[in-house]
Write a protein that binds this DNA or RNA. Structure first.
Lengths: 168, 168
DNA sequence: ATATTTTTTCAGAAAATTCTGAAAATTTAA
DNA sequence: TTAAATTTTCAGAATTTTCTGAAAAAATAT
């Protein structure tokens, strides 16, 4: 298979993959393209390679920057802005975990704390099941939160190495 | 806060939460409602509690069953079908991990294997970056795959306990 | 300052996803 | 059987999400 064809397939699959993770197709595709590009690209490059509009590129690049996955780069002697993606996959994963933890897990744990204090007869099986479900989700969530925190903090090789040795 | 209100909030948030994970809102809401219901519910119960149509309930219940998160239950002396959700959160998480691993991670690893064999000059920096990116994603993916496999197989208390002790 | 290039914004258009409701199929009862 | 209850299906409707393109804003050059 030639590079052009392989690139196309990778970008397209990465986009489809993204949609299963609450990420929109175009954002994932831009990210994919930047991941495999040795040099930074401009908005025009992205428009052309992916056949999408300027506005679309601009909005999705902004999101990728907010996620901490893409950076603006200044190329001296060049008026346009360039963009580049972090290439170290462990760092990419860490960054995504960090953001999703903050955006999703933490607010959910907060909500569960509030809802657990529901009034009512603890002998009513409806109340009982509600409280039990919430408390077990919360307990699970808190453990996940701790584990993810460790992963975020850990150095790549140390962490993966240790974990793999531990479970091998 | 009263149970009715708390339930409403939990179901609604769980639905919103689901959309960040590639799960549709209604499916997540049905799941939430079944999680906090001590007794099995019928399609009519779900229609009424969530104010959604019969078709909608039916389709999403089918999906939940395919995900292994909900079961049909026969209630003797009753003509309608009843549905109930697995209440053990660890089992729920395990089941979701298992399915997503199968549906998403494994196909992606397969594709990466294929694409890595791209033809071309390994000195061309475009080819080089492409191959390197794919190979590092693959290596990361394979390690994740192994780790998830261990989690799926592991007994709840043993696993969480060990991991927490290991990282404390 | 003024002109030119580049980036950003956002209203409306397009596309994708989800939902409804009624008809068809299936199941159970009489 | 035949009838009644229940479940399933799916075409079109409604909703939500994403995208476009042109105008406004911002940045840089002359």
């Amino acid at each position: 298979m030639k590079l052009t064809e392989a690139k196309k397939q990778f970008i397209s699959s990465w986009g489809a993959f993204g949609t299963h993770w609450g990420i929109n197709k175009t954002m994932a595709q831009i990210h994919a393209l930047l991941l495999i590009s040795p040099d930074p690209l401009t908005q025009d490059d992205l428009m052309e390679e992916l056949s999408i509009s300027r506005g679309n590129v601009n909005m999705n690049i902004r999101d990728l920057i907010n996620w901490g996955l893409v950076e603006r780069v200044i190329v001296p002697g060049n008026r346009k802005e360039f963009f580049t993606a972090e290439k170290d996959i462990w760092k990419v994963a860490t960054q995504i975990i960090k953001e999703r933890k903050k955006r999703e897990l933490e607010p959910m744990l907060k909500l569960l704390d509030q809802l657990e204090g529901v009034e009512g007869d603890k002998k009513d099986k409806n109340v009982k099941q509600f409280v039990e479900t919430l408390s077990s989700i919360k307990s699970f969530g808190k453990q996940a939160d701790k584990l993810l925190q460790v992963m975020i903090k850990a150095d790549e090789n140390w962490f993966v190495g240790s974990l793999m040795r531990f479970f091998k």
